[in-house]
Nucleic acid binder design. Structure first.
Lengths: 125, 125
DNA sequence: AGATAATACTTAACATGTGTAGCAAAAATT
DNA sequence: AATTTTTGCTACACATGTTAAGTATTATCT
């Protein structure tokens, strides 16, 4: 099993839920569209994830009074607690993977993936 | 949408179904476990995919008489036809991606992904 | 102003990823 | 030979990926 998944299963969180929670925590007040961009999730997936995180009280939502289509998402103390409990181990797993592969190769891989991501999505030559 | 997905949607095939079909076509008689290895799919996913391909008559199954836990999977003429109809365009998309990124970078990316794959799965240092 | 289009989601439907459990058959053990 | 373990799948449950459709609200156009 993916080492990150193993970590998070104790907290009853999936990797994507964890990613969303981290984005919300790092960004402060943020709306779903921006979360979806930063977490690389499509909106339908994000909708479901936010519902689950909301049900568990890890985030809270507030309607945007100026544009009532929008919401503002924010992490709760319970959500912060889960971040605190798992961030260290999560970063350690990443560091271990990076070390195992070699820092240079790891960075090269990330660069190439970003390049692929830039060159593929818009097929408009 | 992924260019391969767009291609295959005409044939009502998903990318994974396509991958399985290609593995079966290239390998001749083959059992599900080997398909799952070559197509990088876990068995529960493969089970469902094989059922769908079987329902559509693109593959056929035969019981292994020597080991009755096993099956032998084989592509049908209808399956071959779908390969014939889509292989060229599929290879062209791959070639285009490769060209767009640059052959060297593309190869480097594949190498690094393989390396990551080798170093991660077994966390047994 | 009123019709139209665009935006920000949400819902739905289907396919796959993934962990767990189940089941039959074969292999290994005692 | 009888029991246990392993193997090769299959079934289930839940989460996400993905496309299409729906809804409410805002922006634009005429």
């Amino acid at each position: 099993m993916g080492p990150i998944r193993a970590l998070l299963s104790d907290a009853e969180l999936t990797e994507q839920q964890w990613r969303v929670l981290r984005v919300v925590q790092e960004s402060g007040d943020i709306d779903p569209t921006q979360i979806s961009e930063r977490a690389c999730l499509l909106l339908p997936s994000l909708t479901r994830i936010l519902q689950k995180l909301d049900d568990r009280g890890l985030i809270e939502r507030q309607k945007d009074l100026e544009d009532r289509r929008r919401q503002i998402i924010r992490i709760t103390p319970a959500g912060e607690q889960i971040i605190d409990d798992n961030l260290g181990a999560s970063l350690a797993v990443i560091a271990q993977t990076r070390a195992k592969m070699g820092a240079e190769k790891y960075e090269a891989l990330l660069d190439l993936l970003n390049e692929l991501n830039r060159s593929e999505p818009s097929k408009a030559d």
